[in-house]
Design a protein around this nucleic acid. Structure first.
Length: 372
DNA sequence: CATACGTGGAA
DNA sequence: TTTCCAAGTAT
């Protein structure tokens, strides 16, 4: 018998129906990921507690976003704004600029709104799931995650990883969405009174490194003896998902106006909706019509527009093709627009799609420039 | 309950 | 190339 299996038996004897949590925590102690916002299990055992501000910041950044993508943004934010008070004191515009490229920009607006609220209420985050969930940008998952990780509350933390682990552990045939209440109830039964924060992080690490969507590494799984999907012979079949709808294609035209000194004409998008509050190059509306090529006839003002190319970009619910036009103009910025100087462009609150547009017209224009 | 909301990396 | 999908939230 493998040593791991003997450990497993001993845990069962001690913990009874908590054996799944015990097995998972034992695995986590040995195989946890080291992450910038995380307190390791050994440090936690010695009494170190995570900073709720950093837990909150990381959890919001990690919503629908990969760990690798978050790391650099996390460091940027904690260096610029080490505390919730510092973030509250920052201009919203600076926060949007720092968030540019990370996606789901309403998160940045809610982050700032949440920081303002918490700072106004004394600078401490609430330490219960219910009160956390009242804050902007904090939903069911994030409230539970902060309560468990930052405040050691036995909250049921259910994210995409946990849904996958649980749906396999119990071979749940109900499609995701409909199965969420069932999954939540199962997690609530598993959460231990001791180390609930580590339990939550362990579930997510297991989902991220062992119980992966494709080709799960079941041979290395601490829960393989408990897993119904392994018995059924096909863990990868879970979670069961409903087929998704096709992504429609939209088209439009964008207009990169460049001044003699290299400045580019930009404007701010409305606060709400797609890319809300972010900066953009002047553009036509993005329509579903797939017939005609867009032309410089649609330009916001006359200039010697030359077609510079076409870029593609894929959003969650539609794909976009933009024809990029380029012209050299001089003079004042039209109403609602502003000139962004060449060395300032890389620091603007430009979403990735807009950086692609500018690069198509003026290669290198959005890259970081060395300060003089 | 369904839909809107970004991006980039992996297979 | 295409498809999937990653620590979800707001409406």
């Amino acid at each position: 018998m493998a040593p791991q299996d003997q450990t497993r038996k001993a845990e069962k004897a001690v913990y009874g129906d908590r054996s799944i949590a015990a097995s998972l925590l034992g695995w986590y102690d040995a195989h946890h990921r080291d992450l910038p916002w995380r307190v390791t299990p050994s440090a936690f055992a010695r009494g170190t507690r995570p900073d709720p501000y950093r837990v909150w910041l990381s959890e919001v950044m990690l919503q629908q976003t990969t760990v690798e993508a978050v790391k650099a943004y996390f460091w940027t934010f904690v260096e610029k704004w080490p505390t919730v008070a510092a973030l509250a004191a920052a201009p919203a515009e600076d926060v949007m600029k720092a968030w540019a490229g990370l996606g789901y920009y309403s998160r940045a607006r809610n982050l700032k709104a949440c920081a303002d609220l918490v700072a106004r209420q004394g600078g401490r985050f609430p330490d219960t799931e219910a009160r956390l969930k009242e804050l902007p940008g904090i939903g069911a998952y994030t409230a539970a995650a902060i309560a468990a990780i930052a405040f050691d509350r036995p909250a049921a933390v259910v994210d995409g990883n946990v849904e996958r682990v649980i749906s396999r552990l119990y071979s749940i045939e109900t499609p995701l969405g409909e199965a969420k209440p069932e999954i939540r109830a199962l997690v609530e039964k598993l959460v231990p009174q001791k180390r609930p924060g580590d339990f939550a992080q362990a579930m997510m690490d297991l989902g991220a490194t062992i119980c992966t969507p494709k080709r799960p590494r079941c041979m290395l799984c601490p829960l393989r003896e408990d897993c119904s999907a392994i018995l059924a012979g096909d863990p990868e079949r879970f979670p069961v998902r409903l087929p998704k709808d096709d992504r429609p294609l939209r088209r439009g035209a964008t207009f990169v106006a460049e001044r003699g000194d290299g400045a580019i004409l930009l404007r701010k998008r409305p606060e709400k909706g797609l890319l809300g509050g972010m900066t953009e190059v002047p553009t036509t509306a993005w329509t579903a019509r797939a017939d005609g090529a867009t032309t410089e006839d649609a330009a916001p003002f006359p200039a010697g527009w030359r077609r510079a190319g076409r870029i593609g970009h894929v959003f969650t619910h539609f794909a976009l093709e933009l024809d990029v036009f380029h012209a050299h103009i001089e003079g004042d910025a039209p109403d609602g627009h502003f000139w962004s100087l060449a060395h300032e462009i890389s620091g603007e609150a430009l979403p990735t799609v807009m950086k692609k547009v500018i690069e198509a017209a003026i290669p290198g224009a959005t890259k970081k420039q060395r300060a003089h």
